[in-house]
Amino acid sequence: MSQHILTVDNLTTRFATPDGEVEAVNAVSFHIDPGETLGVVGESGSGKTQIFMSVMGLLSKNGKASGSVRYKDAEILNLAPAKLNKIRGVTMSMIFQDPMTSLNPFLKISKQMTEVLVEHRGYSEEKALKHAVNMLDRVGIPGAAQRVHMYPHEFSGGMRQRVMIAMALLCDPEVLIADEPTTALDVTVQAQILDLLRDLKKDFNTAIVMITHDLGVVAGLCDRVMVMYGGRVVETGNVRDIFYDSHHPYTEGLLKSMPRIDRAHEQKMYAIPGQPPNLQNLPSGCAYQERCDYVQNRCTQSRPVLYDIAQGRASACFREVGE
């Protein structure tokens, strides 16, 4: 029955640390359809990146994921690397915030880009190079035929991010996971990269996961949004519901505390009080209770689950169930 391209069920990711076990991701479930863009929003430490590191089998050695991740109908969580390599980089690709640390500084772009095609597609070196140049051209790198023979350090930050995107697109993936791809870039270059992602979605029906803390980026690009806090999903919904009718107090607080370029600010900015939670020492009850404007007694005693508000719309707050 599943027409979803990626289905995640009850994903939990734990890390063994010297100070004990930390649950970075806790019982997270969601799905993505072809051509859809999902925004995953949260602060540092909210677990948003670790969900997709688990999905892609890229967890660090002390990390362990449980639950279920299905690509179409096939279970892919904790697959052996050899089997996973048939999927990652081919039908599912990931791009990261810092392109310099994800590119090999010792290898020319041509080598880094053709390797995957020779390996996965059985292309000849020549055919692979041609394809790589086409792809660099596609993402807007001027003089791609010459620049493909350069090293990563010869590119600017924005250009490196384009190279990363081109590399991720080599095998026409059905899912592109973008982890803060524009955070390190200037706004002018960010606008170029976001345009590029929009075109991808339109031209190739690529499903995109946009992991970000910037609600402005989400507003412009995403169809659905998943808000993370303390390793759990606290609210999901389509982009308009999240922005115009947010239910969870954390979503509401995030939206209110965003400085906006389109408004004159006369008074103080709204600020969510306190600090993001320490995953090693989460309070019993709701993780957001100490910062919440609506906290009640029961929030300290038991943890609210995700309550369905409408089709595809849920919030993990007791306010949804009434007294």
Binding site: V187, T188, Q190, A191, L194, D214, L215, G216, V217, V218, A219, G220, V239, R240, F243, Y244, L255, M258, R260, I261, D262
Partner: peptide, 10 residues
């Protein structure tokens, strides 16, 4: 180029 956190406006 600065994104506005409002889907319609953005």
């Amino acid at each position: 180029a600065v994104p506005i956190p409002d889907p319609e406006l953005e």
